[in-house]
């Protein structure tokens, strides 16, 4: 377990992300509403570089023929097969069991750190 301070806060604009390499792992750090979320750049389905996927909102569960758009900027969609993942939790939008690996992020004196190892 360790915190890897890999970026400064100004490296990631609001709504943007950056992909960093920490101990051989590619990790995407996303900034959403001032908070940071880190995920492994590896889709649990077939291993696609998920951080190349579009970040957007999506249609929320709704009544038949209603379309309620929400979660703007919080959903990443795999660039290969289109699976949607919640950047806040890492979970796919179709199953709690299917998730992209998430890492804790710590911000200290303007530096953004990814917590690796257990935890």
């Amino acid at each position: 377990m360790g915190v890897y301070y890999v970026l400064s806060e100004e490296d990631i604009p609001e709504g943007g992300h950056a992909v960093v390499n920490i101990e051989g792992r590619e990790i995407g750090i996303y900034r959403i509403n001032g908070e940071y979320h880190a995920i492994l750049n590896y889709c649990p389905h077939q291993g696609a570089p998920i951080c190349a996927g579009l970040v957007s909102g999506t249609t929320l569960p709704s009544e038949v023929y209603d379309y309620e758009y929400g979660r703007a900027g919080e959903i990443v969609r795999c660039p290969w097969h289109g699976w949607e993942f919640d950047l806040q939790t890492g979970k796919s939008l179709f199953s709690d069991r299917i998730r992209v690996k998430k890492y804790k992020v710590e911000v200290h004196e303007g530096k953004v750190g990814v917590v690796m190892g257990r935890g």
Binding site: P49, A52, G53, R77, P79, W80, G82
Partner: peptide, 10 residues
Amino acid sequence: YSPIGVMKKD
């Protein structure tokens, strides 16, 4: 129409 498009994005 597909929201994903036909092409693999990378």
